[in-house]
Structures are given as structure tokens and as C-alpha cells.
Design a protein around this nucleic acid. Structure first.
Lengths: 245, 245
DNA sequence: CCAAGTGTTTGATCGAGATCAAGGCGGCCT
DNA sequence: AGGCCGCCTTGATCTCGATCAAACACTTGG
């Protein structure tokens, strides 16, 4: 669905949201590594995109012409099998960079999960900026390394953890993932549906729902609504996540 | 086992194998990006390590003091759960770089799977070299991106593929993984055991064995020995790997 | 040559999570 | 207000791959 709801091209979208120097995501993104002059150059290259829920940022197989920076909201990144099976490889939030792991064509798709915004850059221009900005390149390398470590942790989860351990891991890690959006102290926001959680954890919707119910029953979490919860026993949750029970 | 069989430290190991300029893995590794002067500097920093089967390169949780370059043989990289469940996150061959995805401490362990060799560098010295060598940094970033793409493909495999699809994917990808070691044209070498394949694919030894038998029965592969095989019907194998059958 | 050890294959059974099937709960549109 | 639709929960059953259990194939060493 929303297959053709693509993004506006060119200058039309620029200046739609605030400039780099007042960007709320700046402190959390690779842009934090830039000095004032460099930031001005980045600012000139940036194309600001407002995002609606379901908007397609990029599609697996398309020519990789752009890279992105999520500035608010949340994004799902996924790969598909020919018959439609989906694996979500990551959720992105404000400050996250998108487009690192790409050759000539995108190896994954990315869509907004809720209203938000992103910056888009022509890959060629961005590459030139990287060339001239060692601090930016170092930052990107560091980010790539973090992502790689996270990917390895996810492989452990997908290959060897039980359903209970997967959901516990997911809920534990959520608390640190969504920067600048704690809506309210201690409350964890779930911008994604059960189906998206399932496709991220290699489970089905039903299994995710059953495990959540169980965690609720055991008073480890409290479900305020399907999309908001609090963690009542963080230690217990973390132990479950690591398979220590 | 072999827990304490650690590697010799310092200069003792240097010059044990050939220098950078005659290194067989050079063309396949990040070193290929260096000019003669830079290569000389790298050469001076390198500590050559001969590897025996089972040798520990680094262990999850240890202080990340070194980075490595595999120059021959093969290496398994894995993460463990407290109860011993193991997920192998990758196999490395000649030319592969190891140590990218690390913060202060290693987030995974790495062990040789067969006799071989590696170069070891002090992380601090290597970082300094990177600082002065943009081409190297660019190469590392590119490598990290490739690894990230590979990790996403592996997540799709672990989260959503059937046992048959996993083994087919593994065998298909093997053909391009082990550079400079085709032993004989058309013959695929399996330097790892069934147990290691299982821990890489999120399966058990028995399931891997049964699927291999099935692929053999259907004349898609031919098992010359448990550790050598030929692919008789590459098209069919690839279709199975992508879940198109 | 046999014994012991390691790794692989094959067979029988079991079980965690998938699939199939209803209901329940909002939110949104007319 | 009412009705539809998307999402979530819960229950019943099924199935793929795990587990349990042997036997088999090599290699190494006495």
C-alpha cells in the first residue's frame, strides 16, 4: 500500500522544516561532528522532507542516489523475500543515518512508521563532503561499527534466542533507542505495530502478543495501551533477555 | 578447549611470515589501498601471527587492544549466551579485516578454524595510521558497509528462511567467500564442521546434515567428502536460497 | 590390528512457535 | 450514532525443526 506515495523532488521540499543550526536531532546525529562552516555546507545540500506514516524513503533494488538523516519520527528498514516474507533489520529514530550499507543499489527498503521528518542528500554531493571532512568520515565509520555490533547482537537473537528472550531483549533495548522522545519519564513508546515487532524478532504477531501478555501477567511490564508501556522490573527483564532464567 | 592457548606477544612473532609486499592476501585486503610508503609504515606496525586450529584471536569481553587482518586460513566469529548457546556471526578468510565492530571491549570472540596466519596491530597505532591515511579510512568505511549489508542479509536468513533455504543460501554464498583458495576449480571447500554451519545458520547439526543429504539426493550438490563438495545445479540452488521454490 | 575419540548420518519422538480461527477494542468516516 | 476497518488478544490445532538415540566413518595412537 502507498506504493506510489513517493517524496517530492528537488527544491520544493527545502526549507520545509527548520535549518541545521536549529535541528533538534543535531546533537544525536553525525552532524554533531561538524563545525559551523561545515554545517553551513551540509545545510545547503540538505533537502528537508516531511514524512507521513507509510511514506517510502527508499526501496530495495532502486538506484542508490540518496542518503538520509532521520530528524524526527521513526522509520522501519526491511528486506523481503519474493513470497512476501519480511525481515525488519532495524528501526531508526531521530538522529539516525540511513544509506551507509549501500552499493549501487539499495539492499533494503525504508518507510516512515509515523509522521516525522528527514534530511535527504544526493549521494555524490554527500560523498564529496565526506572527502573534505575527516571528522564526518570518522563519525560515519564509528556509526557503521556500532551498527555492525548491533547487527551481530540481532543475529544472536534471531539465531539462538527463544520467543520470550527475544521480546524481553527488544523491550529492554527500546528504552535506549528512541532518543529525545521519552514522551513522559519512564514510559516506553512503541511506535511500531505488533506485526512490525514480529517481523523484527523473527516471530509471528500472535507469539509477540502472547509473550507481552505473559510479561504483563508476571508484573515485569505494565501495558498502558498497545503502544505505551512501563517496565516495572528492569532487572528481571534484562535477565530474561540474556537467557539467565 | 584450548582456552589458554593464547598468542605470543610483542616482537617474537614478527617476521614469522612474509612481509606486506609479498603478502598473498594483500590484493584482497584493506592494504590494497595503500601506496608504497604507507605500506612500509603498516609493515612496521604489523605483528605476524601463525595460527593453529582453535587458536583464539580475541575473546568477547576482553579489552579491545588490537585489530587483525586474516592473511591465510579461516576464522570463526561468534557470540555466546550465558548457557553456552552459540551464534556464529561470520566466517573470515584471507584478506578479511577483524576488529571494526568494537568499542572499548570486544563484542564477540574469534578463533582460527584451521592452520593459517594473521597480522595483528595495536589499535592505538592503527588508529593513528588511519588518521594519516584517508584512503585506508575510506576502504574501512566501504568494508564496514559491505559487512553491514551482509549482516542484513543474514538477519533475513535467520529470521525468515526455512532450514532448506538457509543451507542453500550458505552453500551458494560460500563460492564467493573464500578467496584465493579454490583448491581445485569448481570444488567448494568447507573448512568448518557441521556444528559450525549449524551455529551460523541458527539450526542444529542434525538438521544441517539432513538438508545436505536432501540436496545431494536431488542432485543439486555432490559431496566429495564431508568437507568438499561441488555444486551441480547452481540455478536450482540459488532459487532454493531465495525461497523461489 | 584394535580401541578410543571426533565428527557425520540416519531414525524416532517431542515441543515451541506457527497457523487457523474467533472475538474484542478503538478510531474514523459518513 | 452506527458501522466498518485495522489492530490486538486469546484459543485450538498443526508442523518444522529440536531433541533423544544409535550407528557409522575416519583418524590417531598403543
Amino acid at each position: 500500500m502507498l506504493e506510489l506515495k513517493s517524496l517530492p523532488d528537488g527544491c520544493a521540499a527545502r526549507r520545509r522544516t527548520e535549518a541545521c543550526d536549529r535541528c533538534g536531532a543535531r546533537a544525536y546525529s553525525v552532524c554533531a561532528s561538524l563545525d559551523e562552516r561545515e554545517l553551513a555546507r551540509l545545510d545547503a545540500l540538505a533537502e528537508r522532507l516531511p514524512l507521513s506514516s507509510g511514506d517510502v524513503l527508499l526501496r530495495e533494488g532502486d538506484l542508490a542516489r540518496h542518503v538520509f538523516n532521520v530528524t524526527s519520527g521513526s522509520v522501519r528498514v526491511y528486506k523481503l523475500l519474493p513470497d512476501g516474507r519480511r525481515q525488519i533489520t532495524g528501526f531508526l529514530y531521530a538522529g539516525d543515518f540511513l544509506g551507509l550499507a549501500t552499493g549501487e543499489r539499495y539492499a533494503f527498503s525504508a518507510e516512515a512508521m509515523e509522521p516525522g521528518s528527514a534530511c535527504r542528500f544526493r549521494k555524490s554531493e554527500y560523498r564529496a563532503l565526506i572527502q573534505d571532512t575527516p571528522a564526518l568520515e570518522a563519525m560515519l565509520l564509528e556509526r557503521a561499527n556500532h551498527e555492525l555490533a548491533a547487527a551481530q547482537a540481532q543475529m544472536l537473537l534471531l539465531g539462538r534466542k527463544t520467543a520470550l528472550e527475544r521480546v524481553a531483549s527488544f523491550l529492554r533495548d527500546l528504552t535506549t533507542a528512541d532518543r529525545m522522545r521519552p514522551s513522559q519519564e519512564g514510559i516506553v513508546r512503541l511506535p511500531m505495530t505488533r506485526g512490525e515487532i514480529a517481523d523484527y524478532l523473527g516471530l509471528t504477531i500472535e507469539t509477540v502478543s502472547r509473550v507481552m501478555t505473559r510479561l504483563k501477567t508476571e508484573n515485569i511490564i505494565r501495558l498502558l495501551s498497545p503502544n505505551e508501556l512501563t517496565i516495572e522490573r528492569p532487572g528481571r527483564l534484562s535477565a530474561l533477555a540474556d537467557g539467565e532464567a
